[in-house]
Amino acid sequence: TSIVNVSSSLNVRSSASTSSKVIGSLSGNTKVTIVGEEGAFYKIEYKGSHGYVAKEYI
């Protein structure tokens, strides 16, 4: 489990790309479970499925 480190919110994306669809967002200090990594993104558990967040904010 890791913590989201942002002051406002962090986009959760459908794939490991800044141009991919935003499927949701997480607020600062939210706990997330990392299940993998791809480039500059972590794959996380998100709403019963998976999403991707930028590593620099975790």
Rank of each mutant, 00 (worst) to 15 (best):
E45P: 04
G51A: 08
L10P: 07
T30L: 07
H50T: 10
S7P: 11
I34M: 03
E45Q: 09
L26Y: 03
H50E: 06
G48I: 03
N11H: 14
G28F: 13
H50I: 14
E56V: 12
S7D: 09
N11P: 15
S2N: 11
Y57I: 06
Y57H: 12
A40G: 12
G39V: 02
G24Q: 02
V22A: 05
I58P: 03
V22M: 06
V35Y: 05
G36L: 04
V4G: 14
G51C: 04
T18Y: 15
S17E: 07
S15L: 09
I44L: 02
T1A: 13
S19Q: 11
R13C: 07
I23C: 05
S20E: 02
K43T: 03
I44G: 00
L10K: 04
I44H: 00
Y57A: 13
K55H: 03
S17Y: 07
L10Y: 08
V35S: 04
T1E: 11
S27N: 10
K31T: 12
E38D: 09
G39Y: 04
N11L: 15
Y52H: 00
E56F: 09
I3H: 10
R13K: 06
V6E: 07
S49Y: 08
S14M: 13
S20P: 01
K43Q: 07
V12T: 02
G24N: 02
T1Q: 12
S2E: 07
V53F: 03
S20L: 03
L10H: 05
S25H: 13
Y57T: 07
V53H: 02
T18Q: 11
T1V: 14
S17G: 06
V32L: 08
Y57E: 14
A40F: 07
N5L: 12
S7H: 12
S15P: 01
V53G: 01
G28H: 13
G24I: 05
S17C: 09
G48W: 04
N5M: 13
I58G: 03
S20W: 04
E45I: 14
G24H: 03
I3W: 11
V32G: 01
N29V: 08
T18P: 14
S7F: 08
Y52E: 00
E37A: 07
I3R: 09
G39K: 05
Y46D: 00
S8G: 15
F41I: 01
S7I: 13
K55S: 04
S8P: 08
A40E: 14
G36E: 05
S14F: 12
S2M: 15
G24D: 03
S19E: 12
A54S: 09
Y52W: 11
A54R: 14
Y57K: 08
Y42M: 04
G51H: 01
A16F: 03
V32D: 00
F41L: 01
S17D: 11
V53M: 04
A54L: 15
E45W: 10
S49Q: 11
V6T: 12
K31Q: 12
I34V: 09
I34F: 03
E56Y: 09
S14P: 03
T30E: 12
G48Y: 05
S25V: 15
S27I: 11
G39S: 04
L26N: 00
V6G: 10
F41E: 01
K43C: 08
T30W: 08
I34D: 01
V22T: 06
T18C: 15
V53A: 03
V6R: 07
K21E: 12
K47H: 09
V53Y: 02
Y57L: 10
G28W: 14
T18M: 15
T30K: 06
S9W: 12
N29H: 11
S14H: 10
S20Y: 06
T18N: 14
S15Q: 12
I44Q: 00
S15W: 07
I58Y: 06
L10T: 12
T33Y: 10
S27Y: 10
V53C: 03
E56W: 09
S9N: 10
E45V: 12
S7W: 07
E45Y: 08
T1S: 11
E45M: 12
Y46H: 03
G24F: 10
S15E: 14
V22Q: 04
G48A: 06
V6M: 09
G51M: 02
S27C: 14
G48V: 03
I34C: 04
Y42Q: 01
H50D: 05
K55M: 07
S2K: 11
S15V: 05
R13T: 08
G39T: 03
Y52N: 01
Y42C: 05
E38V: 09
G36K: 04
G36Q: 04
S49P: 01
R13F: 15
L26H: 02
E45D: 07
E45L: 14
S25N: 10
S7N: 11
V32W: 05
G51F: 04
S27W: 10
S49W: 07
E37W: 08
G51V: 03
V22H: 04
S14T: 07
S49M: 12
L10F: 10
S14G: 08
Y42P: 01
Y52P: 00
V35E: 03
G48F: 05
S14W: 08
V4W: 04
T33G: 06
S25A: 10
A54D: 08
A40P: 09
K55P: 00
I34L: 04
S25F: 15
V53N: 00
G36A: 08
V53R: 00
S19M: 10
K43W: 04
S7L: 12
S25M: 14
R13S: 04
E37M: 09
V32P: 04
A54G: 09
S25D: 05
I58C: 06
S17K: 07
I3P: 06
S8E: 10
S7T: 13
A54P: 15
T30C: 11
S20Q: 02
K55F: 03
K55G: 01
V35Q: 04
G36R: 03
S19Y: 09
F41N: 01
I3D: 06
T30Y: 08
V32M: 06
S17A: 07
E56G: 07
V32C: 05
K21T: 12
G51W: 03
S19T: 13
I58W: 07
N5F: 07
T33N: 09
G36D: 06
I44R: 00
N5K: 11
I44W: 04
G28C: 14
S7C: 15
K31C: 14
T1N: 11
K31F: 13
